[in-house]
Design a protein around this nucleic acid. Structure first.
Lengths: 182, 182
DNA sequence: CGTTTTAAGTCAATATTGCTGACCTATTTC
DNA sequence: GAAATAGGTCAGCAATATTGACTTAAAACG
């Protein structure tokens, strides 16, 4: 459908332009489902991350900082390598956000006990407070979505999302604690 | 950037192990669900977009180009303003990708019939072919995830994802769903 | 012991994708 | 004719990602 005209209020007539091709073809039901899924993932992810972004904006932090905070909070004592394996970004990309978080007192680093090359990452109290605040914002969103959809839908959502993840991510979710591979 | 311990090197080999705080606290069941949802959204979205990114890389296009192709394909004759309203980016950000797509013959522009200020956007044959190729890649992923999860889970997934979207996105979905556009 | 590997930090350069603000043109509407 | 609208463009900036090369410290190996 052409929703390209948000306000043709006065004139009000919609004249279709000459010879538009049909929308991307939907050959069968499963094809329609796929198209739907694309839209769902785009909009839902955007609007989900949006609520945290608003909080981050006040503090001049970005989404990358949030991700680091989240995974450090969930895995206290994680190493830089471990975090890299989860996030799958380069060391340099992580260093930028990590240094900012350490400088601003959100994250602290401690050398490993047995292996002193390691830098064990933890959230400071300040970091935990911020992470909690970001979590609360997204929590509201998730809770509302879950309430709207019902518990059965939630289980389905979880199954599909998990099935969309690759092997390494599933292994991490299974609590092996290691994001073994890419 | 070791600022945790300025001069520890001679303090001895047996540094007390850093006291690790507990993971971000999970106070009740729904809290655990929320934490899970955060992880699910991050990993699933990343791995879903990944399959298209691999195709785009060959052509030196980015995710932003894919999004434009997708929504133009789904809404032939959409205006620049309409596309901006869906993507919620600035005119300048869109112009960059749109000009690239037009220059490379993936998208064509035609002046509106009724209102000649409008530029109605459509995919060329070449653009449709590319969009189809990107769709196929993500299709494989979705189909596999849906197969793994079962039809009931799929319905739940859809409900939750939709509930996560804000009002504007839901309105778009309602006007563009597979029910209407063919 | 010395060599090699590993964990991490760093520097320089580049690309993508978003942003703001300011302006300009063509066209429609009042 | 003036104002509003659709669109385009320029210049600059910011966040996040990339690659490649290099350094340091500590562990592992032989």
């Amino acid at each position: 459908m052409l929703k390209a005209k948000p306000h043709e209020s006065k004139a009000g007539r919609f004249v279709p332009p000459p010879k538009l091709p049909p929308p991307t073809p939907v050959v069968d039901l499963s094809d329609a489902e796929m198209r739907l899924a694309q839209d769902l993932l785009f909009f839902a992810y955007r609007d989900f991350t949006n609520v945290a972004d608003k909080v981050l904006e006040e503090l001049d932090l970005g989404r990358a900082h949030h991700r680091a905070l989240h995974f450090i909070g969930r895995n206290p004592g994680i190493t830089v390598s471990g975090l890299l394996a989860i996030l799958r970004i380069t060391k340099q990309s992580l260093a930028r956000v990590l240094n900012a978080l350490v400088d601003q007192g959100f994250v602290s680093q401690a050398p490993g006990f047995e292996d002193r090359r390691l830098r064990l990452l933890t959230l400071t109290d300040k970091g935990q407070a911020l992470e909690q605040r970001l979590f609360d914002a997204q929590c509201t969103k998730i809770a509302q979505a879950y309430r709207e959809s019902g518990p059965q839908a939630v289980q389905g959502f979880r199954n599909v999302m998990r099935a969309m993840m690759d092997k390494g991510a599933r292994a991490y979710m299974d609590g092996t604690g290691s994001a073994e591979d890419a």
